[in-house]
């Protein structure tokens, strides 16, 4: 499942961007230094293959509904971790830009959730040891299913974790987790079966492709990437815990919600209290606009929310102004070179 921009906070999104960017840079330099320059066109074409393969659906056994290939694990088996990670990342970039899946800020989260776990965890730590060097049908299938399930569970956990830390959704951590994990268990089993079916075919037709002949030296040295990841995770954890304690908006906010204490503060409380002060001076807030339910704690949120009525009036007005600006810009476009509003 893709994260959406609207559900991530800048801190979470930015941190995950940084983590993914580090991983992309590392994997890129690793591919470049491997001297295996045939990998790059291969990765590009296989990325396109993932899109193409998703056009073909199949009937999910026992249910009658239809599914399609996700592809993360398959790429990892075919290309090795680094190349697979970059390929998945590139697919996600295209999806974010063209198909509005996820979004630009959430891209870092998505690359991490859908790329890191299958390429650097599920494949090397589960699929490879489980399948062994010359797997039987059953063994390969079992390895693929287990790796796919774990990869997707980790990915789903990532989504839940990042969403709750961002604190945009009111869903509590545990209930979101309960919602996501079972769905992804089912998706993971199906993904594993499909991956196994494709791998078995390749195994029969072109066994040499599965020997890891493409990137032998890439899959071996995992340690640097794992170390990078751990550092990044620590950094993320530190940043986020600071954020969470500073702004009771993430996990703690959910907990507060459940336990009944109501402390509602936007992440920009500081900025807003300043505005609130200005606003109180102007004192134009009509009394009926909001009801102070919980004097002490609600004031902050109240002053924010109390503005919403006047805010909505003003917002609509600015929206209209924006539309007018656009209308004018489009009318004058031919005459006016560089019709940007600020010029």
């Amino acid at each position: 499942m893709h994260m959406a921009d609207a559900l991530v906070s800048p801190v979470v999104g930015g941190t995950m961007w940084a983590v993914s960017a580090v991983l992309i840079a590392r994997c890129s330099s690793r591919i470049k230094n491997s001297g295996n320059d045939r990998l790059v066109p291969l990765m590009g074409v296989l990325g396109a293959f993932i899109f193409a393969a998703q056009m073909i659906n199949f009937t999910i056994p026992l249910t009658g509904s239809s599914g399609h290939l996700g592809g993360g694990l398959l790429l990892a088996v075919l290309l090795g971790p680094s190349a697979a990670f970059l390929t998945i990342a590139s697919v996600l970039v295209v999806q974010a830009l063209f198909f509005a899946d996820g979004g630009l800020l959430a891209l870092g989260c998505n690359i991490f959730n859908l790329g890191f776990f299958p390429a650097f965890v599920a494949y090397p730590l589960l699929y490879k040891p489980l399948a062994g060097s010359s797997p039987t049908r059953g063994r390969l299938t079992a390895a693929a299913v287990i790796a796919a399930v774990v990869g997707l569970q980790l990915g789903a956990f990532g989504v839940v974790f990042e969403t709750t830390l961002s604190g945009v959704s009111s869903l509590s951590f545990s209930s979101f987790l309960l919602l996501m994990q079972p769905i992804h268990l089912a998706i993971g089993v199906v993904e594993g079966l499909v991956t196994a079916a494709v791998l078995l075919f390749v195994h029969r037709a072109r066994p040499e492709l599965l020997d890891g002949a493409v990137s032998p030296q890439l899959s071996r040295s995992l340690k640097p990437v794992m170390v990078t990841f751990l550092l990044a995770a620590l950094l993320t954890g530190a940043l986020l815990s600071w954020f969470a304690s500073e702004q009771p908006d993430g996990l703690e906010w959910s907990i507060a919600k459940v336990s009944g204490s109501k402390e509602l503060r936007g992440p920009e409380a500081g900025l807003h209290s300043g505005f609130a002060a200005v606003q109180e001076k102007i004192a134009l807030l009509p009394d009926y606009a909001f009801r102070k339910q919980n004097e002490g704690q609600m004031v902050q949120a109240g002053t924010q929310l109390g503005t919403s009525l006047s805010g909505i009036v003003g917002g609509t007005a600015t929206l209209l102004l924006a539309l007018c600006a656009g209308f004018l810009a489009s009318r004058k476009k031919s005459a006016l070179k560089g019709s940007d509003a600020f010029r």
Binding site: G13, L105, T318, L321, A322, S330
Partner: peptide, 27 residues
Amino acid sequence: ICVISLGRYQLAALFPFFIFPVVLIAG
């Protein structure tokens, strides 16, 4: 980043940001 960094209850503050897409679409 500007849009995302707004608080979850700052609904009205989002409206002025429509200027960006609107002007770019029109321009």
